[in-house]
Design a protein around this nucleic acid. Structure first.
Lengths: 264, 264
DNA sequence: GCTTCCTGTATCTTTTAAAATACAAATTTC
DNA sequence: GAAATTTGTATTTTAAAAGATACAGGAAGC
């Protein structure tokens, strides 16, 4: 990553790079709705490319409905008429959020199979070398817009207590507790990844777009891994949010998450 | 984003796209260290490009020191010798973590100025139309490797109580409390963005790489905004982690974050 | 030792992207 | 209404990326 002595990273289409950057900035709020972007000539100069290239990037943004151009006037960020509702999940109390959310959202099962676990999954769940896992890939939509791509791995011995049909209708969580698994604690990690051809397509986005990734490993009371979740979220349609309070006395002031109801 | 009626997004350099994807997968653990990648021919087929293009992408990975190639044998993911230490921060108790971390890390001030706030910042801090803010951009390194890029906005009336030199030596947080600001609560949001030319360079990464973004707004007891933080993290050098416990009785079982010491 | 599967290397062609440039037309500003 | 600024459009040229193809050479399995 740091070492750049060998071959340099391929530059890649400049128009596309600028398209992705501008899109990111617009969705991220750097360019607020209603605000005019810098002129094409200015953009060309600041990005070190020709105006034609800037134009190609802007064409794509117009195609996405993110900006409007007016000859002679400028290019303006559109009001996000189509996505006024952005889903938010609270970090601190994640599950209840998700369960409540499940009412408004639909989940589609994209794939379902028993496979040998990827190395990292086997390690996290502490599986034997020949133990198999059930892998399920689901796509969640809200208001007919895909916002998350979930891949779950469950050890075969636990997974065999429910069917594919159960999974399609009931949250995995409920199924496990019904079976008598005593869910105890979990560890989750948040990161960022690029959309691949496999994940971009169901999420209705572009290869190379930034996605939030969340990895969660759930354990039972005895410390055995129960479930490995790898979730991808479109940052423009889903946010992970959390409230913190400053607590404690003078010597030990620190932050603690607010556990009450959802923010907002 | 969804609407693809207008101009399609520019395709962009395929070699670069594949380079970024493979890099992402390697750093994300999909291809474990020591494991052989699929052969060039296989990769070419699965990505729908020629072998030459795959080769260009792999060349760049070799240049980054992420993979090793052996003629006749294959291409293998290298053991990450250079970055064995990955920093982790706990979400639930973020600040203590950061303060402790500050001991091992260095921070460099990249820019310091009083400016008119971006629209989103002004709104979040509930500033008047002509109120200015102090903007400071800092770069954090650990073991000589940059891992985070921080931009903070503080209303002018609060910021004027400390100098640029203070900021370089003392955490912003301490400065505020010393001044008598009663830090009360905060709201933070995690997302994912692409590295821009401006952020990629100091973070020693590539334009178009995925970065974790964290936005935090800190309020005082009366609800006034004190600080707006926009942080970018390299996902390969920094992780946001959090432990959860399953708590509550039968009727109201839910998750609660573990507040004790760091995980790991 | 033979076969198979892989990477290394080289050349040539085709395709695509980017740049340079010029000018028309709409809009704002003064 | 003149000037300046901005987007719209078109053409030509240049540069870069991708593809197709062929063959040499190392490594592993049988």
């Amino acid at each position: 990553m740091t070492v750049q002595n060998g071959a340099a990273a391929p530059e890649g289409g400049k128009a596309r790079r600028i398209y992705l950057l501008l899109r990111d900035e617009i969705l991220g709020g750097t360019h607020a709705p209603g605000e005019a972007l810098p002129g094409e000539l200015r953009l060309a100069e600041s990005h070190g490319v020709s105006r034609v290239t800037i134009r190609r990037a802007l064409d794509a943004l117009v195609g996405d409905g993110l900006v409007e151009r007016r000859a002679g006037s400028g290019t303006v960020v559109r009001q996000p008429s189509s996505t006024p509702v952005q889903l938010k999940a609270d970090f601190a109390t994640l599950m209840p959020q998700l369960e409540r959310m499940a009412a408004e959202t639909t989940a589609r099962l994209l794939s379902f199979a028993y496979v040998s676990p990827p190395q990292q999954v086997g390690k996290a769940l502490n599986l034997g070398p020949d133990e198999k896992v059930q892998r399920a890939v689901r796509l969640r939509r809200a208001h007919d817009k895909a916002f998350s791509h979930l891949t779950t791995y469950v050890p075969e011995r636990i997974a065999e207590s429910y069917s594919e049909a159960d999974l399609a209708s009931t949250p995995l969580f409920r199924l496990l507790e019904r079976k008598g698994v005593r869910v105890d604690h979990a560890r989750q990690t948040v990161s960022a990844v690029l959309a691949t051809p496999e994940t971009a397509e169901p999420l209705e986005t572009t290869v190379g777009a930034a996605l939030i990734s969340l990895t969660r490993v759930v354990y039972d009371a005895s410390g055995d891994g129960i479930e490995y979740l790898y979730a991808l979220y479109r940052p423009d349609r889903f946010q992970l949010e959390m409230l913190l309070n400053r607590v404690g006395g003078n010597d030990d002031r620190h932050w603690a998450p607010v556990l009450s109801e959802t923010t907002q």
